[in-house]
Design a protein around this nucleic acid. Structure first.
Lengths: 267, 267
DNA sequence: AAGTGGTCTAGACCACTTT
DNA sequence: AAGTGGTCTAGACCACTTC
């Protein structure tokens, strides 16, 4: 059995028809080539980036996308598989595929790796020390892909677990993107700042990279954390990226690691 | 076109034949069920664990494994996809699939996240301070899944980059597994310790989890790192696991982060 | 030319959710 | 019952490596 009822399709079949996709390797060994499912993935990513489907929303079903792009369901599936692995979307059997969002409790601990030595992680309370518009210093500008002197929003706050001040952090945000962000709005907003960024500034962080160091508390940090100057603190500098790997946040935190530690899995 | 030439197979087809696989959900909502490709994955992992295919070696081709397990190539492929994602194997188009190994330069930086602030990462030189067999203290025993008092090997060493002492670390290894590990052998062995563990003790680390803290140098660490007591140091406690998620190494390191930092990607 | 992994398709059926 | 993602199969062809 299993004869060959005329090749149901050959090579890059339904190809020439609708035109756009399937960038065949124009010249053997050419630079521009990527498999179909990556092209589909790029198209879906573009729709995410453009806001066609917003965080928390359902995206079209695999069958629907397959029809739209004129490819098989399996190819769409592979594209979405990768997006799910990168946490850009979330699949739910029987329901559909949802755009990732920072509005859920789950998401809170994706970027916050500081956990208590004992007990379960919970979200800290924030106290804002300072919020102002300033011109970007050279180092901040470089990390955020801005020009030195461009407008940025500067935020300084202290976060406490169970009333114990544990984190003092400074945030730098591109003024152009976060225009209109006020201290009042942040104080009134409950939950992680990434939720606010997403719902009010259409900016969804997809990835971040951190550099960790050990430092000692200076007078300012010591006072804010209510510890002696010279107390060792874990310094974390985080650059967060949105779609297209565009840097949109610089965060510099000092963590008191007396009752907490930074947890990391190496795979 | 594309008619239906009698279902080439139905449901869990070639099933009843060879027997073993395809644990159907005996009772709807039963606890024991996993898709075929995960069962295949488990079988392959068992062969890796048993040493049937050793680190660096080629495993059988997808077609061959499909024949062996009486499943389609696609199912084997999905199993191997997951193993590759977990870094247990490495695929190379045209050549085959290889068992992951710590013998390659690439592998050196998988677990060593400390990188220089400037310039490219390179591997440090080791100086061994102490190597001895001891009885496991309670905390070490707990982390290594041993009994308090069980034999363990204790190693203390300092690692330098370009002659600058940067890491002082203590390793605790189960005596049963690493029987015969001597200071001489370690000194004479070039390259990362995980390479030695793999080639001489048939122990391949597949994953690790680290807890990071900021501490200050005590007199001992200060002397070894040639810094003043009170200098802030990044403390990293790492538990490394081998196949079956069995803990086989406890490593406690103190990192001088003056010229280096710990780099972490958050996805 | 032969073998290996990589891509793509088509179709069937399963598990879960909603109507 | 209908729709969605999840699994499994079979087969074709491509890209890369080795003989």
């Amino acid at each position: 059995m299993a004869m060959n009822p005329a090749p149901p399709n050959s090579t890059n079949n339904a190809n020439a028809s609708s035109g756009t996709l399937r960038a065949m390797p124009s010249v053997p060994g050419s630079p521009t080539f990527s498999p179909l499912y990556r092209q589909i993935k790029a198209l879906i990513t573009k729709s995410l980036q453009s806001g066609e489907w917003k965080p928390g929303e359902l995206i079209p079903s695999e069958v629907e996308l397959a029809n739209r792009f004129k490819v098989s369901q399996g190819t769409v599936r592979k594209a979405i598989d990768e997006l799910a692995a990168e946490n850009l979307v979330m699949r739910r059997q029987g329901k559909g595929t949802f755009v990732a969002t920072h509005q859920e409790a789950r998401a809170h601990f994706r970027f916050l790796r500081l956990v208590p030595d004992e007990g379960v992680p919970h979200y800290p309370a924030s106290k804002f020390i300072e919020v102002k518009r300033v011109r970007a210093p050279a180092d901040v500008a470089r990390l955020l892909d801005l020009k030195s002197g461009d407008a940025v929003i500067f935020i300084k706050r202290v976060q406490s677990f169970d009333g114990v001040p544990t984190i003092v952090e400074e945030l730098w945000l591109p003024g152009l993107i976060f225009k209109g962000l006020t201290a009042e709005r942040m104080v009134e907003y409950k939950g992680p700042m990434y939720g606010l960024f997403e719902s009010e500034f259409a900016t969804h962080m997809i990835r971040a990279s951190e550099k960790l160091r050990a430092v000692v508390a200076d007078a300012d940090a010591a006072e804010l954390l209510q510890v002696a100057p010279g107390t060792p603190l874990l310094s974390a500098e985080r650059v967060s990226l949105t779609y297209g790997d565009k840097a949109v946040e610089l965060r510099r935190g000092l963590y008191l690691t007396a009752q907490h530690h930074y947890e990391n899995e190496l795979n």
